[in-house]
Every structure is written in C-alpha cells, then in structure tokens.
Amino acid sequence: MGHHTEVQAKTKAQYEYDRHHNAVHMKKQVVNFAIMIFLTFLAFAVVVADFSPYLIKPFILLLAGIQVVLQLYSFMHMDDKNGHHIGVISTYVWSGAMIIFPVFLAFVTVVWW
C-alpha cells in the first residue's frame, strides 16, 4: 500500500510500442462503436418497418443483448486480462445477470391482476 510506486521510464521502443498499441486499440473501439450504432439503427428500423411483433420482439431483445455484451467487453474492458481480479468481477456481473432472470420471469408470469 502507498503512493510511492516505483517510477520507471519506458525504453523508447517500449514507449512507441505502447503508443501504437493504444492507437490500434482505439481504432478497434471505434469499429465496435460503429457496430453498436448499426445495431441500434437496425432495432429502430425493424420496428418502423412493421414486421410481426412476434418476430420483432425477440429480435430486438437479441440486438440489445449483443450490444450490451459489446459495451461490457470492449468499452468497459471486461476483456482486459490485466484488469485487477477481472475474473472475480466477471463472476459477479454474470451472477447478477443470472439472479435477475427469475425476477423478470416471475414479474411477467405470476403477477397478473
């Protein structure tokens, strides 16, 4: 514990490698963002296009699911193996997702009058 972390200068090669790596990573993020925009657009489009609700509802829920996973793993860096205890964090996030599933199930099935 403490604030006196060792200050280490990177070598020039390491520094340039890291800068490059960051830039490449940022480009990936922009691509992910483009995918999210596309998914959003698609979701609005199928609703406006007025297909059968039985088709649209599961479809847009699926799109939302994909978009959320993209957010979690790219923008929020859950894919980053260097994140501190990221495995434990993933366990908590997915436990939370699992616990809310029966809640939704109960509220749409057995709360009825």
């Binding site: 649209i56 939302a64 978009q67 957010q71 979690l72």
Partner: peptide
C-alpha cells in the same frame, strides 16, 4: 458512464421500441 449507456440500451428496447409495438 458506460453502465448508464448499458441500461439505456434496455430502456430504448423494452420501453420505447416494444412499447410502440404494443
């Protein structure tokens, strides 16, 4: 801030889009 966006993804899907479908 990203998490706020995650929640919004479900809000626009479930509240607005599925709301318009009825």
């Amino acid at each position: 801030w990203h998490f706020i966006d995650v929640v919004w993804v479900f809000i626009f899907t479930v509240v607005y889009l599925m709301g318009v479908l009825g």
